[in-house]
Design a protein around this nucleic acid. Structure first.
Lengths: 216, 216
DNA sequence: GTCTATAAAGTGATAGAC
DNA sequence: GTCTATCACTTTATAGAC
């Protein structure tokens, strides 16, 4: 490889970073996006390891040379797919008070997931595959679990302060359980969509953990 | 023991005496077992699709010819591994009354799973991979979910009859949730064993769903 | 001697490297 | 686009348990 050239980064972008001209052409971001979409689908259908780059280029209708221009390695592509999933995946946001209703957030997120083909499958297949040795997605999922557990633990702790948590419950345990329940029920849904209702299952768990609002 | 079967006499010999085919030799069941153990480990580390038969034969220290002699196809081998897992996996059994304490059963099973390396990994990796198209393990896991949900639903229904279920709970929903929670928390445990306690998480869920025993 | 178990070499298809 | 390695699997033949 020549000096001043980095794998996986378009030359134009590298020039731009050095204060030179241009940056990526207009078409290239659309093409990157098309590659990421194709990779998303193939990874979700076959897993990361069993997916070949040819599977992906065939699906995207491009040459392998093109793929290597945008993503230097298969790992880079996986990272891009996971990042893209993160940007896709957020539906409910805190309201003006900085609060979210946990029920509403989970329901909206769960319903949206089901509507976008491949999102649940990608996540479910990779989160397990990534537990195996030397998997490039390992850190991503470890971080994701830590972050999700902390976030929900804060919500449950807040409810506990308000006396709205069932006595004897631990916010950290509830948070880990909520994440686990969600992941697990999604896998059951993938196996048998007709007999599993993801949003209703999440609601039933919250109903167990959270006491009804005291009458005003 | 069936008639026509004598203790201590190889099956092959018994068949031969009856004039039929000879059947497997004495060493072959040990070798089958060694192959299944090797396949269990490789499948759990790499998944089914990404595992090659050479990975397995290298691990078992045999030739590929031998493997094909015992298991005609890769799919047959997967089935054998899953069957073997089923026979391994049962710890708690109903007591004399035909009853099992749900708490005890889940705790024992969860603790045992953690002690046997690869059991949780195999299950977690394959149950997700099997949701993808044309996966030979699909039916196995679909059946397993149906069976597990029915079994736990019966337990919860029994508790409900005794008035020991939290009011408003649905036995079927609780059963699906329990299975989902278990699968999901095991995946978290694989990612980060130090910060996840599988048996305690299951217990905390049962504590939410099941009312304490009424004082006698 | 028979039948099982292992060995060696080879099939077409497809993988990733260049 | 080309090339080589490897994939799941087969064929043919021999060694050895019975």
């Amino acid at each position: 490889m020549k000096p001043n050239q980095r794998k996986g980064v378009p030359v134009a972008t590298q020039r731009a970073e050095r204060g030179g001209a241009r940056g990526p052409y207009a078409k290239s971001s659309a093409k990157r996006r098309a590659i990421v979409d194709a990779a998303h689908e193939v990874f979700s259908q076959r897993g990361y390891r069993a997916a070949s780059l040819k599977n992906i280029t065939d699906h995207a209708g491009i040459s392998e040379t093109s793929l290597f221009h945008y993503f230097g390695t298969k790992q880079d592509l996986l990272v891009a797919v996971l990042d893209h999933r993160d940007h896709l995946g957020i539906r409910a946001r805190p309201d003006a008070d900085g609060c979210v209703d946990l029920y509403t957030e989970l329901r909206q997120q769960a319903e949206w997931n089901e509507d976008v083909p491949g999102v649940i499958q990608l996540y479910s297949v990779l989160v397990s595959e990534a537990t195996t040795e030397d998997h490039p997605g390992r850190q991503y999922f470890a971080d994701r679990f830590t972050e999700l557990r902390q976030r929900y633990a804060r919500e449950f702790a807040l409810l506990q302060e308000q006396g709205r948590l069932r006595p004897g419950s631990d916010p950290d345990m509830l948070a880990a359980s909520l994440v686990a329940l969600w992941d697990g029920i999604q896998v059951q849904w993938l196996h048998d969509p007709a007999s599993v209702d993801v949003p209703a299952t999440l609601k039933s768990f919250l109903d167990l953990a959270i006491l009804p609002d005291p009458p005003a």
